[in-house]
Design a protein around this nucleic acid. Sequence first.
RNA 1: GCGCCCGUAGCUCAGCUGGAUAGAGCAACGGACUUCUAAUCCGUAGGUCGGAGGUUCGAAUCCUCCCGGGCGUGCCA
Length: 656
Amino acid sequence: MNLLASIRQRFLPALKDLVEDPAPLLDLVRPAQDARFGDFQANFAMPLAKQLGRNPRELAQQIVDSVDLGDFCEPLEVAGPGFINVRISTSHLETLLQQVAGDDRLGVVPVSSPRHFVVDFSSPNVAKPMHVGHLRSTVIGDALCRTLRFAGHKVTSDNHIGDWGTQFGMIIYGFRHFRDETSWQEEPVTELARLYRLVNQLSEYHATRSSLPELTRSLDAARTELEAATAEAEVADDADRKKLKKRVSAANKEVASGEAALHSAEAAIAAVENSAALSRQAADHPQIARLAREETARLHAGDEENLRFWNEFLPCCLEALQRVYDRLDVQFDLTLGESFYNPRLADVVDSLAEQGMAVLSDGAMCVFSPESNAPFIVRKSDGAFTYATTDLATVQYRRDELRADEVLYVVDKRQSGHFQQLFETSVRWGIGDLQFRHVSFGTVMGSNGRPYKTRSGDTVGLESLLDEAVSRARRIVDENDDRRETASLTDEQRARVAEIVGLGGIKYADLHHNRDSDYIFDWDKMLATTGDTATYMQYAYARVCGIFRKLELDRSDIDFSRIPVLLRTDEERRLGLQLLSFGYALDGVLAEYRPHLLTSWLFSTAETFSQFFDKCSVQKAESEELQKSRLVLCDLMARAIRTGLSLLGIDVTETM
RNA sequence: GCGCCCGUAGCUCAGCUGGAUAGAGCAACGGACUUCUAAUCCGUAGGUCGGAGGUUCGAAUCCUCCCGGGCGUGCCA
């Protein structure tokens, strides 16, 4: 049992006498927010006093008098309006540290009732190269899988790839008409990506051209409205002014977005028309969008040739994805894409129709929710199924075949509406006890506050992103090592460190934000040699390894559990206390699936260690006992960082 | 129109079901390397928590309104 849990346990009897359900009150026992308040603080006396109509300080004192914590705490103190401050006795901390010494789990015990989680993450469209947008889902999803497993749950990671959608029709169309045979033989994935982009560009070109008049018209309308609203606002009296001000600002926005839309449309058209080759292709394929959709439809209908193409394309696409996952060290237990569920979709719609949940509306089969008026479309008017249908089939499969208790969807927060409909429909459909959770996250932004793009406006490919992270890290590794009196790393070691630091930096930058917020992608920040970055933890790890190297000790040869721990200085005590809090950092992560609580624990741990490193020499410890004790702390610290980072999918290195 | 989200230090962000004097990192300024890796540590400075009300012993946190921004919203996924 961890320290916090045992303190709560001791408060339980006193609270039980006062209220029926002491659990919410016990949650108010927390690590102290300030060292002056001790190590832990109990905040329950105030709300409880209100509930009982009593004086909070007196109540706190009464509880303090009846609680038995003497064997491991200093005397409890009542402070302020009724806070109870708890300071663990140093000798108890020493005992606890000795108990967890040498333990990779730092005393964290697996959950008593494991659940089976299916974690749905990454989920790229296989026909397109992965881009920066897939990074968050992949990194957060992987971190959650690792953390859930560590906690003792059963986890099935599932990559729900898009391998059956519209984009395959586009590739098939491109393959038929625009294939470059040499490049297809030599670089199939690159060629498929090129075909996808080409067909997409030509389709967009035609669509944009035909939408141009409408864009111009609505921009004109917006400008007219802006003029009208502005004119009216000038002569309005106070009562109307506010309303009109709103109208003006809305009209302003409308004009701005109209102008932006027009400009980007013109740019898209120019991009094609400025190229002789593209213009010719566009002219030769005026119906390209429709024809590409028909290729998709033929594929779904079982057309032999299209299926053959699909079977030919898919392995190369998957191979390309696998390269990225291998490099990121992300593993999936299952990769069940849309195509896997295809045979089940018709039954899903039938079942919904039988239950009277799905009805025909404007030719489409829709599930209407009693609460919202937005339909959940499970079959389009052209007969094709949608991702709503696939997701419902997936829910059914995960319950019936995988026997999941809970499904986590690590998906962009912009899809929250879809998931709300999915979960609600599933419940009404009769999915039973299966729990759902949309683990949503914000958009990756560029420094301009817009979604992260290359200078030319393309999405950024994930592989080139990883390459850049590593090459930037390499420059930093070189600089640091060259600055030393004698460089300590070989060329090979530098390359390895750069890989670990570069990929760690990119992952950590993502994970250390609260996942809900959008975050600004910034190379300099994520690879900074100072501050709250993966590098800081990795460096702390390398330094602790350096201590053992210096003393010519092999950590694996030492039985740390037999060495008495002595916490003589503030730095040692703080480090010890910090190391004992790993468990509640993990509880925090899993309470709402927020990995940033683990990054912040790791940062505190590394920081506390750095202070210890600064003040408490191991090599020059005052006595042999003290040196051994410090080695225990060092070993625990190394395990803490290595284990904690590993739960985030981040590696460490012994030298850097 | 309807729905969801956001606004905290110059910048990037934490702040858990309301708790003590609102915290980090970066940037700025000043210190610390004959000493286990200075990719470090110590210190200083920096805030009307978008605004106004309300709920109460106590509000960045809960409620209402206002201002500003984002996203989603019937046949893309």
